[in-house]
């Protein structure tokens, strides 16, 4: 049997960490979580997830910087990353999408939309 795709969720806010993890599990994925960006970078390197849900406003380093560091690992250079954030300045969104994000989702999000985006990223047609 094919192993379930693995999703890493990084968010310092426990409520949204739980919500995103639950939705990723509903999408049929195994889930690992980290509450800070640096822990997320380390976990990405150790676990080699199939996709990453990454909060932008993390307390240690920004989600964008975490994404750059994660992408430096050759095995993770092409990993789909979906950013999610409460802040919605146009320059931030542009920066996130320029980093090659698979998606940019504003909090609070529509759970069905996030589910669709996760499925599209881990089970591409």
């Amino acid at each position: 049997m094919k192993p379930r795709p693995k999703v890493l969720v990084v968010d310092d806010e426990p409520d949204y960490l739980r919500i995103a993890a639950r939705i990723a599990a509903k999408a049929g994925c195994a889930v690992v979580t980290a509450p800070t960006a640096l822990e997320g970078v380390a976990l990405a390197s150790a676990e080699k997830p199939d996709m990453i849900l990454l909060d932008v406003g993390l307390p240690d380093i920004s989600g964008f910087e975490a994404a750059r560091r994660i992408r430096r690992t050759p095995a993770l250079a092409g990993v789909p990353i979906i950013f999610f954030t409460v802040r919605s300045e146009v320059d931030m969104v542009s920066e996130g999408l320029k980093l090659g994000a698979a998606g940019y989702v504003l909090k609070p999000f529509d759970p069905d939309e996030l589910l669709r985006r996760i499925k599209a990223a881990v089970f591409p047609a």
């Binding site: 919605s88 300045e89 969104v93 999408l97 998606g103 940019y104 504003l106 529509d110 599209a120």
Partner: peptide, 19 residues
């Protein structure tokens, strides 16, 4: 949209002085 919901994109554009 493939990378963002159109509703979110509109909210983002509306919030920026330039747009």
């Amino acid at each position: 949209l493939p990378d963002m919901s159109g509703r979110d994109l509109v909210a983002v554009l509306r919030g920026a002085p330039r747009t």
